[in-house]
């Protein structure tokens, strides 16, 4: 049984169909990536899994064998799925520490205390700045905070939406090293990226989204070598 099983997912914004019947799986311990251009439906897919958007009829979203449909968005995190959203969306007027505490909102404080140490291990810079307002952090640090905040719920599945967006190449490398480290410790990750090169280089498997449909899928290594993927997404 897959950890996350998506079947025939359809999501519309009014009359516009953003996701048109996609199906995919994420197995325990994997990094799976969804790559594709702007408007392909990647973020829509993640937001639907997180409960922020409602899919149309006949869509199936199953996590650990249980359907997630009909569960209100604020209860999804309690089922073990955390989304680190596109554009980070940290709480800029709150301190780093408070942001992380919000990430553990559904858990009791004693357990959250252990997890915060785990987060600081991976993001030592957050520990240095724990009392600083999140709005005063640099873009890369805000991305780290958003990821740390998502980890605070101790998710079975961590969904990352465009973690490299707007970051300098050296920071992109740092963020991906952290994703790799989290994976090595057994975290299951569903990664959405426009930076296909980076995403394919750390993922186990990948799906290519084009205008709401999956056009290609397979082991990330194979897609990295695929001529069509190279041409469309890897700039060569």
């Amino acid at each position: 049984m897959s950890l996350l099983h998506i079947e025939n997912l359809n999501v519309s914004y009014g009359a516009i169909r953003a996701v048109k019947g996609i199906s995919f799986d994420v197995e325990e311990g994997e990094i799976v990536t969804l790559i594709g251009a702007n408007g392909a439906g990647k973020t829509t897919t993640l937001n639907t899994i997180a409960g922020l958007l409602k899919p149309t009829a006949y869509s199936q979203v199953t996590f650990e064998g249980k359907s997630l449909l009909g569960i209100p968005a604020h209860k999804i995190v309690g089922h073990g799925i955390a989304l680190c959203p596109e554009g980070r969306r940290v709480f800029t007027g709150m301190s780093v520490q408070d942001n992380l505490e919000m990430g553990a909102f559904t858990r009791d404080d004693a357990e959250a205390g252990e997890t915060i140490e785990f987060v600081f291990e991976h993001f030592p810079r957050l520990k240095e700045r724990r009392n600083q307002l999140a709005g005063t952090l640099s873009g890369g640090e805000q991305q780290m905070l958003a990821m740390g905040r998502a980890l605070m719920s101790k998710p079975r599945l961590l969904m990352l939406d465009e973690p490299s967006m707007g970051l300098a190449p050296i920071l992109v490398q740092e963020i991906f090293d952290i994703i790799q480290a989290l994976h090595d410790q057994g975290t299951t990750i569903l990664l959405v990226e426009q930076n296909a090169q980076m995403a394919l280089s750390i993922a186990d498997r990948a799906y290519v989204l084009e205008t709401g449909k999956i056009s290609m899928e397979g082991p990330a290594r194979e897609l990295l070598a695929d001529e069509r993927v190279k041409k469309a997404y890897l700039g060569g």
Binding site: A50, G51, L52, P72, A73, H74, K75, I76, V77, G78, A82, L83, P85, R89, V90, F91, T92, G93, M94, M102, G103, F105, T106, R149, A150, S153
Partner: peptide, 16 residues
């Protein structure tokens, strides 16, 4: 305060 800054992000944290 989290809700007043960003309702969507607050929802993702599990806040009703």
């Amino acid at each position: 305060r989290a809700c007043s800054e960003d309702r969507g992000a607050a929802t993702l944290m599990g806040i009703n």
